[in-house]
């Protein structure tokens, strides 16, 4: 009996804690469970969530991508700036292209050169932040003619009563989930994360597999930047700061293992949404916005702890 309670807590403890938290917030803040607020949270989540889709692939191979925070900043600056220069459509293409390019660069260093993923992407985080300032010259950019551009649809539009960014995120999640579960690429991602040596002995090219996960991470950050730029109709030089950790926290909160090989897209969707509701709930309870950094810390530590516990359990079982 004791044992089964423990198992339930270990498996579903996070969800239970989350539900208790939701109930507590709902009781003390009337605004929390209103449709307006829920849609607001989802709109917020669609940006981090979109990034987390690509990062999930990276984490599943047992690697990390911490560069996505600065990449989001850079790509948002690009999409807004190019919108003014070249128009919305070329701006979107350039943004996605730049995301893919940066992802490919990370992918070469981690996948082919074999450098440590943490170091490579942390260095890239710094590099891109610098690049942003070179590009923008330190000034913030804003979309000109914000009232009349169709670019506004990605961040501000509604379709059938749902915000367009939320629809885009869910669409992206469905595609990413299908790729991961049903394609040979998805299978390779799980195999490399589960046992890289055995994968290589089975003819799986781990280098290319890892490479493509970073490309995906760059691509989904590109989509996130489009939503972000369209929502804010401008870009500050720090707009994506800290997003890399929020995204990572969402991925592992969903239960995708940092050790690689186990996890899924729907877990990421749940994890990142939970994180969004927690942060929103704390704001409604009257905490200052910066409490979210403390929450990110706590979520990462707890989620990693639980992951490790589960692994230990399996090793000893």
């Amino acid at each position: 009996m004791q044992q089964s309670i423990n198992t339930v807590l270990r498996r579903h403890g996070l969800i239970l804690g989350f539900l208790v938290f939701l109930a507590a917030v709902a009781l003390s803040a009337d605004a929390f469970l209103t449709p307006g607020n829920i849609l607001d949270v989802l709109r917020q989540v669609s940006i981090t969530g979109m990034m987390a889709l690509g990062v999930t692939f990276v984490v599943l191979t047992g690697r990390l991508d911490l560069s996505v925070g600065s990449l989001l900043t850079l790509l948002t600056v690009i999409v807004v700036d190019q919108h003014n220069i070249a128009g919305p459509f070329p701006a979107i293409i350039m943004t996605l292209g730049a995301g893919i390019l940066i992802g490919a660069f990370n992918g070469i260093l981690v996948g082919f050169v074999g450098l440590n993923a943490l170091i490579v992407t942390l260095a890239m985080l710094s590099f891109l932040q610098g690049l942003v300032l070179f590009y923008s010259g330190g000034s913030n950019v804003n979309v000109q003619d914000a009232q009349n551009t169709w670019f506004a649809v990605f961040g501000r539009g509604d379709f059938l009563g749902l915000p367009v960014p939320v629809i885009l995120f869910l669409l992206g999640a469905i595609i990413a989930g299908l790729v991961l579960q049903y394609t040979t690429f998805g299978r390779r991602v799980y195999a490399v994360g589960g046992n890289e040596t055995a994968s290589v002995f089975s003819g799986v090219d781990a280098r290319w597999t890892v490479f493509w996960t970073y490309v995906l991470s760059g691509l989904t950050t590109g989509f996130a930047a489009i939503i972000m730029g369209s929502r804010v109709m401008g870009a500050q030089n720090t707009i994506g700061q800290g997003y890399e950790l929020t995204v990572l926290a969402g991925v592992i909160l969903g239960g995708t293992s940092l050790l690689g090989g186990s996890g899924s897209i729907w877990r990421t969707v749940i994890g990142i949404s939970m994180l969004g509701f927690i942060q929103n709930g704390l704001l409604l309870l009257g905490f200052a916005y910066y409490v979210q950094w403390l929450v990110t810390w706590a979520v990462i530590i707890i989620a990693v702890w639980i992951d490790l516990g589960a692994k230990r359990g399996r090793v000893f079982a």
Binding site: Y190, A191, T197, A198, F201
Partner: peptide
């Protein structure tokens, strides 16, 4: 070198011949 231990027999068997 031989197996992905967290996968089952189905996925391990097909891995070299995706």
């Amino acid at each position: 070198q031989g197996l992905v231990l967290m996968m089952g027999g189905r996925e391990n068997t097909s891995l070299p011949h995706l």
